[in-house]
Computed example of a mutant assay.
Amino acid sequence: MAPKHLSAVLLAAGAIILALAVPLLAGDPDMLQDFCVADYGSLKGPLRVNGFPCKRPENVTADDFFSNVLSLPGNTGNPVGSAVTAANVEKVPGLNTLGMSMSRVDYAPWGVNPPHTHPRATEIIFVLEGSLDVAFVTTGGNLYAHTVCKGELFVFPRGLVHFQRNNGGAPAVAISAFNSQLPGTQSLAVAMFGSSPPMPTDVLARALQIDGGVVETIKSKFTLKY
C-alpha cells in the first residue's frame, strides 16, 4: 500500500476509535471492588462527590444490603393524594456506587404524583395494584400518555417531566426502579412556587402569562411543602 493511502487509512481508523471512545468516557466507570457500603458515620461535613465514603470491609454486614422500607404504605392524606417512599443510598447503604435504587408510590383514589423530573435517572414504573394514567413530555413539547394497569409497566426517560394519576376510586400502588443510587426528584410546582427564597413573582407572572396576584395566591399554598 502506498504511504499516502496508508496514512489516510490510519487517520480514518484513529477517528473511528476516538468516536467510539467518547461515549465510553461519558459513562460511569466500572467498579473496582465487589461493593462500597456507605459509611454514613465517617462524614465530617456535607461535601461528597458521587457517593459516600466506603465502610471498611470487616465492618460490613448483610444488614447493609437489606431494607424493609418499601413494605409499608405511605401516608396519602395530603393535598395531592400520593406518597413516595424511597429506597435509595440514603436508606440502603449497600446501594452506594451500584447505580440503582427503587421507590414505592402509593396513591389515594384519584390521587396524583404531580409533574416532576429525575435529573439523574431514567425511571421504570411497575403497577402492583390499581390503574394509572401516566405521561411524560419531551423537550419539544410532545406528550406521551398511556394507561398502565396492574402487572404492566411504563418508562420515563431521564430528566423529562412526567406524572402519574390514579384513575380509579380505589387505592393504587406502584414500584419504581431507577438507574441511579440517588436519582433526585424536582417537583415543578415546588420549584416555581415553593422555593426558598421565593422565585420573583413578576418572572412567574410573565412566564405563565397570569396576574401577579394569582401567583401570590398559588405561592401561599406551598408554604408547607408536601
Rank of each mutant, 00 (worst) to 15 (best):
Q164Y: 02
M192P: 06
F178S: 07
L132F: 11
V161S: 11
F154P: 08
P157K: 06
L153C: 12
G168M: 07
G194K: 08
F193I: 13
L153T: 02
T139K: 06
G141V: 02
S180K: 08
K150A: 15
V148W: 02
V155I: 14
P183M: 12
G159T: 00
C149H: 00
L153D: 03
G141M: 05
F178K: 07
A135I: 02
D133H: 06
F154Q: 07
A191L: 14
V137L: 15
V161T: 08
V127S: 02
T185K: 09
L188D: 14
I125Q: 12
A172N: 05
F156H: 11
L128G: 10
N142I: 12
V173Q: 09
S131K: 07
L143R: 06
F126G: 04
Y144S: 14
S196Q: 10
G194R: 08
A174I: 04
T185I: 10
L143T: 09
P171K: 01
G130M: 13
C149R: 03
H146T: 07
G141E: 01
V190H: 07
S187V: 07
T147P: 02
F156Q: 09
F156L: 11
F163W: 14
V173H: 03
L182N: 11
L160N: 01
A177T: 06
T138F: 04
L132N: 05
Q186C: 03
V137P: 05
G140V: 00
Q181F: 04
D133F: 07
Q186H: 01
V155F: 00
R165E: 01
Y144C: 12
V148T: 05
I175R: 09
D133V: 08
V127D: 05
C149N: 01
T185D: 07
K150I: 14
A191K: 05
P183D: 12
H162W: 12
F178Q: 09
Y144W: 08
G194F: 09
G140Y: 01
G140P: 01
L132T: 06
S131M: 12
R165S: 10
Y144A: 13
A177H: 00
R158M: 12
V134C: 04
A170R: 15
G140H: 01
P183Y: 03
E129V: 07
A145I: 10
E152W: 05
I125F: 10
V134S: 01
E129Q: 11
G194W: 04
F156N: 14
T138C: 09
Q181K: 13
S196G: 06
Y144R: 14
L132W: 01
H162M: 15
A170G: 11
N142K: 10
V127T: 03
G151K: 01
G184F: 07
V148A: 10
A189T: 03
T185L: 13
P171G: 04
L182K: 08
G194C: 14
R158H: 00
E129H: 04
A189R: 06
P171E: 00
G140D: 10
T185R: 06
L182S: 11
S176M: 09
V161Y: 03
V134A: 09
A191P: 09
A145N: 08
G169W: 03
A177L: 03
R165T: 05
Q181H: 11
T147M: 13
V127E: 03
I175P: 15
N179D: 09
G159L: 03
F163V: 11
G140C: 08
H162Q: 10
